[in-house]
């Protein structure tokens, strides 16, 4: 396989005693999407800023397109597009002028710059607002323009820091479509998000950050299978059955959660054999069920359990 296009090794950044990033090592293959998932303060922006050469690491190394982000920062900048958490566009210029300015600074001639601007305006459905000042744009339009401006030079690597924060659902779906399109065109995308759904939808690989450290990495399916368990949800007929089933399953060493109002009993299951145990028990105890559901863990469960572990570890440490 080809070399990873983004690679970090023990990347650490300390801000006056705060470890915003703590020995983060990751590797992103070309043409894929890495989702960096984490709550506020997890270190997502710090990581993006280091990779985008905006911030030097305290220690550790990072390479983008094979280039060290500190030693070769200018060459890295020639290959990346960054859409930060706050729109980096000029309010008193039009959308068109913003795009043309950046295109020219990247070396495009006037005619080329305008052609590229037209192309991007069309793609991001901003053509009708092309000549209006950005000041008059809605939040969603501004975000789209910001993303469009980051794509002017056709970068190899695109960083999107919380791209859908503050977007309405329609704009969010539109953004997801654009990200998917960029990847089919060969770009590599690193996006940060607090939304599990977004990471699940867009990312080939998800890296979960908590307190500046990577707490898990994998595909969404891998994360679920490694950390989360599937659960059996039984809907029973009577309250007495609920009590009997809960007591019986606990007796078999299972963790049981009951919901008396809905007459449900839930228990995590590790493997098919566990499910068989549950079934055999119900059969022998002659407890009838109306419904039996087997649910996959959501990414939310994964995230909560991972970050909860991490928080516990921190309290102990």
């Amino acid at each position: 396989m080809t070399d990873p296009i983004i690679e970090t090794h023990d990347l650490t950044r300390v801000f006056d005693g705060v470890r915003a990033l703590d020995r983060v090592s990751l590797s992103v293959p070309r043409g894929t999407v890495l989702g960096l998932l984490g709550h506020n303060g997890a270190g997502k922006t710090t990581l993006v800023n280091i990779l985008a050469t905006l911030l030097p690491p305290t220690s550790g190394t990072a390479r983008v397109a094979g280039l060290d982000v500190v030693a070769r920062s200018r060459d890295v900048r020639a290959r990346i597009g960054l859409t930060g958490q706050f729109a980096a566009v000029e309010e008193q210029l039009s959308g068109m002028d913003n795009l043309v300015l950046v295109a020219k600074l990247l070396g495009a001639r006037s005619a080329q710059a305008r052609r590229r601007a037209d192309e991007l305006l069309e793609r991001f459905e901003l053509t009708s607002a092309a000549h209006r000042r950005v000041r008059t744009y809605s939040g969603g339009m501004r975000r789209r323009l910001d993303l469009a401006v980051s794509l002017v030079g056709r970068p190899d690597v695109i960083f999107l820091d919380e791209p859908s924060t503050g977007l309405d659902p329609a704009s969010r779906i539109e953004l997801w479509r654009i990200v998917a399109e960029l990847v089919t065109e060969g770009a590599t995308v690193l996006l940060t998000t607090q939304y599990l759904e977004e990471a699940d939808r867009l990312a080939d690989t998800i890296t979960v950050l908590a307190g500046g450290s990577v707490v898990a990495t994998g595909t969404s399916a891998e994360l679920k299978s490694v950390v989360g368990k599937r659960s059996v949800h039984l809907t029973l007929t009577t309250a007495a059955d609920v009590d009997a089933a809960a007591a019986g399953l606990r007796g078999l060493g299972m963790q049981v959660h009951t919901d008396a109002a809905r007459a449900t009993v839930s228990t995590p299951v590790d493997a098919a054999s566990d499910l068989a145990v549950v079934m055999r028990f119900l059969d022998e105890a002659r407890i009838e069920f109306k419904e039996l559901d087997l649910t996959e863990p959501t990414l939310d469960d994964v995230y909560l359990s991972l970050t909860a572990d991490r928080a516990k570890a921190e309290v102990r440490g």
Partner: peptide, 13 residues
């Protein structure tokens, strides 16, 4: 810390 001046920081300028 806003507008184009922040963008320029991530550009080859």
């Amino acid at each position: 810390d806003r507008g184009a001046l922040t963008r320029f920081r991530a550009m080859p300028l």
